[in-house]
Write a protein that binds this DNA or RNA. Structure first.
Lengths: 204, 204, 204, 204
DNA sequence: CATGAATGAGACTTCATTCAT
DNA sequence: CATGAATGAAGTCTCATTCAT
């Protein structure tokens, strides 16, 4: 079987576009149905191509799941990175939170984030991807906190940075879960909460 | 609570025991494989009964999933309730966190918690169950914070209690997600973080 | 997936009968279409059961193929064993040959024998099964040749027995291939040929 | 020979070369994977051309299979013809046998020979091709046996030639099957066996 | 009450073949 | 002449669910 035929190594723009189509469709399906309940057929239909064609671009469903996960992590990291590049962390968090609540497809989907976290418990590949992503986010946050104020950082003392970054990451995770579980939470509540945390957490 | 769980037979003690057997088995399977990947056959085997028999006590797999979710919520609420009944919230949080990391079956499983949260996005019944549970937990926490010190509460001012309770719930959620994503996090880090949050959050 | 459920270990008479049904059906299909072209669906239809049910009795198609192969080898060995128990080896060979030509289902099918030999080139499990069977047949033949005449043997000298047995096995293989390739070969030709070989090969 | 092979384009030298490329590639794939398991994609890759292009030279996969079979028969006949052109039949048989064991691609592949024989059971076109080839080989052998010694033949009496030729063909078939089933058979064993058969079979 | 054999739908995946470029 | 993207049918296998016993 398979007979030694490589079917996934293509670098043409066309192939890249197809992969993109598939990943977008997969993302929509995974969000709508979940990783397991989303079938290759549903993804193919969403991507408006035959199911068989997808196998020219991804070795199997697992590869698509993994690609989506890495994509989401990238997006998440980008979001987070942009967060602290602004001095307005609180505002940015609020913005992200409301997008999570609204399931705005332009940001990493929160439910998918939860599902992939749970899946990491069982799938070593996913676990590895998550670990890598988490470490990067954490060091991004810590770096920003520690950097001098004139370089766009917060100028916080190095010894307190690790705990602060960890707490911030933890809080953001809590926000993600909250956005999923309380999609109707009034904006005021969340705004106050975020302001309160950010001011306490990032004050010298 | 208990909304819409279809039961096929009546409420004899025997039937109740059977249901319990099934739910315990299902919980173990769901934790090990996830909601979708766990098969009715695996649950039956774990429960040491035939697959067919399970249908006398639950209408279908969905009903079992829903029952498990409600069960986990009950357990979670019990855990949380016991948390604040003690004055040692920080210690209790630390204890729960390490159990989550270790996947101790005696506390609500964190990965299952995430998975059911994600599932709530797609299933209105599950969403309703979660909403109910969350509201109860929140009011438990707020009540405890507001209650007078001589009644085992914290005696915090009523106007700050809502935000504090919300933040605490959010932090706990963050801890759950963290326990799943960083099962190897050293105890020191988490202990410091919890202490720090609790002291800042619950000080007048 | 699979979730640790054993699905093939049954020893009830019922299960044994089902396995038998499946193997008979599989044998017919393999003969009619070949190992690869015979689909699980065709086997299921022939066995008059659903395709899914077969997986309760055999782990996968490979297991069925292997079981058929071992079955054919058993049958072949039985045939061979009965051959030399009689002093009429030539007659027996002639009888088998004509059955091979006629594709008499009561003896090991010759085409299947060829196909499984070719398959052994690629599948180590099949190769192992064949090796074992061949060794047994060879030792059966050698033993019979060497055994004393009063014990139903040929009383041939031990030092010539290995070559004679090997040549006989080789000739029998040639007959199998010939039966497949020349199903219309007139009986006279083959009778003369067999007589000639047997007399030359087994004379002291 | 060559009966019924559909060709899509005309007989330019270029086209002939392309066909040759395809057949060489197909032969390698069929040997490695078998007729059914070898995919058109694997053949195309081996032939270093696109899958689509092959359809310019062969109507479909069946046509390639048939062409390969006819090719193998040609090669086989050539091999056999060269065998008896030498006075050293035994040496030549030994040589061929070891090549079969080693799967030397320069001689007809034995496993493929078995597979196509089995396939002849199901496909009339293949059966016809085999019948033709066998008849030719047989008459070659008989002719050589009957021809006068001064003409490079064996000068055997005409009335015994048919049986002898048939037996030789049968023995060669047995050798092919043996080479496949016992690829590790020690050279000594097979050498003795061949010498023994040849001397008995070709002595006046 | 209980079993587990049986089904049928549907999942993932492969592959011969076609066709626009 | 040549490509390789695309399709659709078919194949293997799983599993929730039912039902005769």
């Amino acid at each position: 079987m398979n007979a030694g035929i490589a079917r996934t190594t293509k670098d043409t723009p066309r192939a890249e576009a197809q992969r993109e189509r598939i990943l977008c469709a997969a993302q929509r399906c995974f969000i709508e149905y979940g990783f397991h309940a989303a079938s290759m057929a549903s993804i193919a239909e969403t991507a408006q191509m035959s199911a068989g064609l997808m196998y020219r671009y991804f070795e199997n469903k697992s590869a698509i799941v993994l690609a989506i996960i890495e994509r989401q992590l990238q997006e998440g990291r980008t979001q987070i990175a942009q967060l602290h590049s602004s001095s307005e962390l609180a505002a940015a968090l609020y913005d992200v939170f409301t997008r999570w609540q609204a399931r705005d497809p332009s940001v990493m989907n929160a439910a998918l984030f939860l599902e992939m976290s749970a899946e990491a418990t069982r799938d070593p590949q996913i676990a590895a991807a998550l670990r890598g992503s988490d470490a990067l986010i954490l060091s991004d946050l810590a770096g920003w906190m520690n950097r001098a104020r004139e370089d766009g950082g917060l100028g916080l003392p190095a010894e307190s940075v690790a705990t602060r970054a960890f707490l911030l990451e933890c809080f953001i995770r809590g926000l993600a879960l909250t956005a999923v579980r309380q999609p109707d939470l009034p904006p005021g509540t969340i705004k106050d909460a975020i302001d309160s945390v950010v001011s306490r957490l990032l004050s010298p």
